[in-house]
Design a binder for these strands. Structure first.
Lengths: 192, 192
DNA sequence: ATACGAATGTGATGTACATCACGTAGCTAC
DNA sequence: GTAGCTACGTGATGTACATCACATTCGTAT
């Protein structure tokens, strides 16, 4: 399916836009093609855009003390990603985003999104809904962190995104779960 | 300060409403007074409202296996709280909310909020901004969970909300940090 | 095909935490 | 007052995890 159609279907789930309104909104999105391993945002960057994933898989991650990596989000098709803290507060990036696989995305600048949100009530409605969904997902993950042990979180993750198992290296799954790669390796080799 | 004035100042930080528009919005809020220990939402409840805190302190928490409690949020003045998962998805509550101290709040139903959001663009703008702020706070806490040890998270919490130290019992702070009360006790008696 | 780096498996050891157990201090009700 | 409940401190012990070390396998470039 074409980029425009993917975005249209995604947005129409929660907002009613006329074709003209959607075309106007879409005109502000820019397509980007990335190769596996390519960097989208690096810590310290000025962050101007957010990204809507059409195909492939990106990761948003934080590097602690130049050593340990923690993954905040695997961004799959129809997910949005950016360093939202830096984007909204106009500060430098504190997280990194790169591509786990080849990827196609659509990006839109913070400025343009705010402009269209103020022009079109339904677009603002859509972005409120989208942020709300992200908030609920984040709360759920926080609870899971406090409540469940590593094994339970691992199984929860694979149940939610079965495609991850073959798509991303195990040490990245460990970095998402917040455990060492050794612990994760022992975990799923134990219950075989 | 009066309830109406507190809400007005809070909202005017991010949205430009005329006095008439604000009066209209405010007419949908209902005042509620709670005593210390009083329950606002219990697991299993139908959830219709969200709550804006005027004074006092509430906690939103999850009970695991009828035994362990994890605190998702301490709700202080000008914070919003509810079981948003249940509220937006029209499902039963999975978390509990009660009052740590006597408290005054304003509440608004999900239905009324959505109605006003669709009527007044600026109100929708405000709620997008508010949700966004919650999302960023949640992401930040998630990172802190993965990256920092208990002691660092404890000091981070007290730096952010110094008033908590005298306001809430230590075992609730432990439940927010996700550690046992014994561990927390040992931690802050060690570095005295 | 060879070579080299990235990903993964697995043992040994250390540590931060939970859990259980018991004690004390303070608050509230009657 | 005193009874009882809640908050809090602290020792002993167990455990899930990190960390370090090294071996093996896989993927990709040349």
């Amino acid at each position: 399916m074409e980029a425009k159609e993917i975005l249209k279907q995604h947005i129409s789930k929660m907002a009613s836009l006329t074709d003209e309104q959607f075309d106007y909104l879409f005109s502000y999105f820019k397509p980007r093609i990335y190769k596996k391993g390519q960097i989208v945002i690096t810590e310290g960057d000025k962050v101007d855009h957010e990204y809507f994933v059409l195909s492939g898989c990106l990761k948003a991650f934080f590097i602690n003390d130049e050593i340990k990596m923690y993954i905040l989000q695997f961004a799959m098709p129809t997910w949005w990603t950016s360093d939202y803290g830096a984007l909204y507060n106009q500060t430098r990036a504190t997280i990194n985003i790169d591509c786990i696989t080849d990827a196609e995305v659509l990006c839109i600048s913070n400025e343009d999104r705010e402009k269209i949100c103020s022009e079109l009530h339904q677009v603002e409605h859509f972005f409120r809904w989208r942020t709300n969904r992200g908030y609920l997902a984040s709360q759920k993950r926080l609870l899971s962190f406090m409540n469940n042990d590593t094994k339970a979180r691992y199984e929860e993750l694979l149940k939610l995104y079965p495609q991850l198992y073959n798509l991303v290296p195990k040490h990245l799954i460990a970095a998402y779960l917040g455990v060492s790669r050794e612990t994760l390796s022992r975990l799923y080799n134990a219950h075989k």
